[in-house]
């Protein structure tokens, strides 16, 4: 009974983090679905082996490892990376642009550009960037999740931000937010 409650709690708490991270890392909805399901199975199988307080890093580490496996396997001819789904941009709060259609369109374009730029980041920088900026994890948690020293995490995050800015440089010249 308690096992089920623990599992339910963990899934409720981390399902979006798992899914979100997989989506950014794999750039593909179907693979993200698969990874999310796989992580859920592993959580259920290992629910008695980890402490609830340490669950976050364990879950994100498992998610990261599975994403890496998927990326390694993805050398097939069919490149699903360009199958960028329409829903991916829907989670952005369009309300920020109010009811102004021009601003809404402009914001959507910017969001799309930034998401694409994030997706183009090298894997090592992207994982840290997504964990920090999107999943809201702290340096220490990321360090444990990815088995990296905290200083390396900080340096990679800085590089990721710089790289993202460079990616957006050309587009930015025309934009007004």
């Amino acid at each position: 009974m308690l096992k089920q409650e623990r599992y339910r709690f963990l899934i409720q708490q981390y399902k979006n983090k798992i899914y979100s991270y997989s989506r950014y890392m794999l750039k593909n909805k179907m693979d993200a679905d698969d990874v999310t399901q796989e992580v859920m199975i592993r959580i259920w199988e290992n629910i008695d082996k980890f402490n609830l307080l340490a669950a976050k890093t364990w879950i994100m580490k498992t998610t990261n490892n599975l994403c890496i496996d998927y990326l390694r396997r993805r050398t097939v001819v069919f490149n699903r990376e360009h199958e960028i789904d329409d829903e991916f941009e829907d989670t952005f709060s369009i309300n920020a642009a109010g009811d102004n259609p021009y601003l809404t369109t402009h914001m959507n374009m910017m969001v799309s550009k930034v998401k694409e730029a994030i997706e183009r980041l090298p894997e090592n920088l992207k994982s840290i960037f997504v964990l920090f900026e999107i999943n809201g994890m702290k340096y220490r948690e990321i360090s444990k999740t990815l088995d990296l020293p905290i200083n390396t995490v900080k340096v990679y995050l800085l590089r990721a931000r710089k790289k993202l800015q460079e990616e957006l440089k050309d587009y930015e010249a025309h934009e007004v937010i």
Partner: peptide
């Protein structure tokens, strides 16, 4: 950098679709 940061900070986590739980695997 601020413009980019502001945009990045508006991104929330992707919502895990419910259909995932209907899959036979889990």
């Amino acid at each position: 950098y601020r413009r980019t940061a502001r945009l990045v900070h508006t991104f929330s986590e992707e919502v895990c679709p419910d259909k995932i739980f209907a899959n036979s695997k889990i």
